[in-house]
Design a binder for these strands. Structure first.
Lengths: 235, 235
DNA sequence: GCCGTTACGGTCGGGCTGACCAGAACCGGC
DNA sequence: GCCGGTTCTGGTCAGCCCGACCGTAACGGC
């Protein structure tokens, strides 16, 4: 582990990186942004977008930069929150890297700019055969990110981070259904959302029906509440 | 944004530390472990026990070491979980330090070894006049730690980390009352705990009554559940 | 034995939830 | 225009959970 000529005092400085798990919803399914690392190195492996922390940069800034430089995503209104820090000494074979993981959520209406080696994967493909193989300990990070998102949908208004500024209750319900992977009763969902103070506010607009027809839905906007009382518990 | 003479590649390595917020309960009140830093430097200021991460050490190991070296606490059964990472470039005036904060909980029966400059403070003294002044951004960390503990008592069995292996339901209720700062109805609390599957298991022992007398209480142990269904919501 | 205290078990009404139903409003085809 | 299909919206009803409350059981102290 250490040679005889190495200094006795352990080095107390190490590389610090930020890896960001960006989730969004496309076509009613929850999707995760992954990057194909340098083609020379890990062929066929995928990783979360990550960058080293610059010495004049906050961790949040590094997270934004990782999305901007690696996937062309500059969404200032995207939800961004710290997930957890992964610092096992052997987690990166190239050396000791302490990685601060972030969870990012963007509305499904955002532009699908995915230049270079970025791609959105259906989260159900991740563990399945034929799906992308995740490098380093990123599978663990993704598992934690998904569990965090699923849990926070219950007791916070985080679901509104997946929808554009104006949305219908069906849009919001499809967010819950995509993240939790279960169907919800439209009528009960509606009653719960509108009776939770501050979750959504009704606008005076109505949305045009989808291709299959149906009665037009009212348009809502985000409310001021961040924590939901009572909570939207998973069935 | 960048000067012409500055090196293009910013330094991507920085000091990484672990700061641990240890909570316990003494005399029915929630308490926090604080350390008085080197007497020469910040006189009268208090800080969370923290150590730099060694290059062959996991973050969890550093958290354990911070408690062991600075407060003499070697509790292998103590609950320890990562809280959040604080990495603002200006958070430490001595230089860039990325600090991974941990939340630690120990039972109130643990030995009160507090050698050197460690002390347990009532959490209600922290913001109050005459209470300890916290160095760096540790007040922010303590606020986050308290909120995490209060929230996780609702939907996990974390409260059992505050009580010894054998406890009464009154012990467990006093944990909730101390952490949340509100009184709870004993009968309703009892009904809720015993009806939550896997929260506690009844033993065949009975505890001796307290100094004021009263009927002896049954003794319980921790159950196998980690998440509570349904949750113990704050009143 | 009496009393204060604590533990334990039960009742009652209100609120929330899931399952279900009915009407309203739109689209497309005939 | 009419009709069936689809979606949105509002309502009912039974069941569960919860807070407030009461009564009994079991101890120690006087």
């Amino acid at each position: 582990m250490s040679s005889l000529t190495a200094p006795l005092a352990p080095i107390s400085t190490c590389a610090v990186a930020v890896d960001t798990a960006l989730l969004t919803i496309r076509d009613g399914r929850l999707r995760l942004l992954l990057i194909e690392p340098e083609p020379s190195a890990l062929r066929g492996w995928w990783a979360l977008p990550g960058r080293r922390v610059r010495d004049d940069e906050s961790l949040d800034d590094t997270a934004h930069r990782s999305l901007s430089e690696l996937a062309g995503i500059t969404a200032p209104d995207a939800h961004l929150e710290q997930l957890r820090t992964y610092g096992d000494p052997s987690r990166d074979p190239r050396g000791r890297v302490v990685s601060v993981a972030y969870l990012a959520l963007t509305p499904f209406a955002d532009d699908p700019v995915d230049p270079g080696r970025a791609r959105l994967f259906d989260v159900d493909e991740l563990g399945a055969p034929g799906g992308p193989q995740l490098a380093y300990d990123h599978e663990r990070i993704v598992t934690d990110a998904l569990e965090r998102a699923r849990a926070k949908l219950e007791y916070t208004s985080l679901a509104t981070a997946f929808v554009p500024e104006e949305f219908t209750l069906a849009d919001l319900r499809r967010v819950y259904e995509a993240v939790w992977g279960v169907p919800l009763d439209p009528a009960n969902f509606r009653r719960k959302v509108v009776s939770t103070p501050g979750f959504v506010v009704e606008s005076d607009k109505t949305a045009s029906p989808g291709p299959g027809g149906g009665r037009p839905a009212k348009v809502y906007r985000r409310g001021s509440a961040t924590h939901l009382h009572p909570a939207m518990l998973r069935p």
